[in-house]
């Protein structure tokens, strides 16, 4: 079976800076795949290229076999691509409920006239939407107590969860999570990790995530790809990636430098 997402030979440069250099990546259907790498490795550039904010100079992106390299972001949303952002990008002037409702935007049909007149059709669609997100998203992510709260007033961890809720409301095939647990305390991190696993188990949604928290990455992912300076330097199971010399070097520096560090000799 073909992978759900295929990234083939992607290169992206901003002026003289090579953000991505011939990066290839397959995301298998139903998997949780993590992209890791030091700061500036090109992880977010990769995400932004997959979501359609950047146009790569070379390479292709296939979602379920469809070439989406040159489609604008809204078209990708309709094909089942959803994402969250590293710095929360919720609609701050709205309540939690309205934010989540926006996730379903592409799946709804009401036009300007029907919306303003709130005729039968528009009304039925709105109420069906409400019932669906109440059951599928709000209950699922345990945010029923804050549904009417303005998002700007929520604590950071909950805002991250609302952003996940909004992405889930899009009924995606592939969910991109850009640093889902960054800046969270241990409890919030564990909650989020559990929700990510539930999303895969109960919804069958494939997840691709960027994360710096290695404990989370090693615990929940099936497959890990490592980037450094825009290049893929390793890929495989979490256990395999952890022991790759190139990966250790990228994170810790050269092997001889490592040998000089106190306590490094016994760690192997």
């Amino acid at each position: 079976m073909a992978p759900l997402l295929e990234v083939q030979g992607l290169s992206l440069a901003f002026g003289g800076v090579q953000a991505l250099d011939n990066v290839s990546l397959d995301v298998e259907e139903g998997s949780i795949t993590a992209v890791i790498g030091p700061n500036g490795a090109g992880k977010t550039s990769l995400f932004n290229t997959i979501s359609g904010f950047y146009r790569p100079q070379t390479g292709r992106i296939l979602l379920e076999g469809t070439d989406i390299t040159h489609r604008p972001p809204p078209k990708r949303a309709a094909l089942g691509l959803a994402r969250t952002f590293q710095n929360i990008a919720l609609f701050r002037g709205m309540t939690v409920l309205d934010n989540i409702k926006l996730g379903q935007h592409v799946h709804m049909k009401t036009g300007l006239l029907a919306a303003g007149l709130y005729l039968g059709w528009a009304q039925r669609e709105e109420i069906a939407l409400r019932e669906e997100i109440e059951h599928d998203v709000i209950d699922f992510l345990e945010i029923d107590h804050i549904r009417n709260a303005p998002v700007a007033a929520l604590p950071y961890g909950l805002q991250k969860r609302v952003e996940l809720a909004r992405a889930l409301a899009m009924k995606p095939r592939l969910l991109l999570l850009d640093e889902p647990v960054a800046g969270m305390n241990r409890e919030e991190t564990e909650d989020m990790a559990r929700f990510i696993l539930d999303v895969r188990e109960e919804r069958g949604i494939t997840v691709l995530l960027v994360e710096h928290d290695m404990d989370v990455v090693m615990d929940i992912s099936d497959h890990v790809a490592v980037l450094n300076f825009g290049r893929e330097i390793g890929a495989g199971s979490p256990a395999a990636v952890r022991d790759m010399p190139a990966v250790i070097e990228a994170y810790l520096g050269h092997a001889d430098a490592e040998a000089d560090m106190p306590g490094a000799s016994g760690a192997s």
Binding site: G52, P73, P74, A77, A89, L90, G93, L102, H105, V106
Partner: peptide
């Protein structure tokens, strides 16, 4: 108005 980048990702 609030966040045009995420609006686009939502399919708007």
């Amino acid at each position: 108005r609030d966040r045009d980048i995420s609006a686009e990702v939502m399919g708007i």
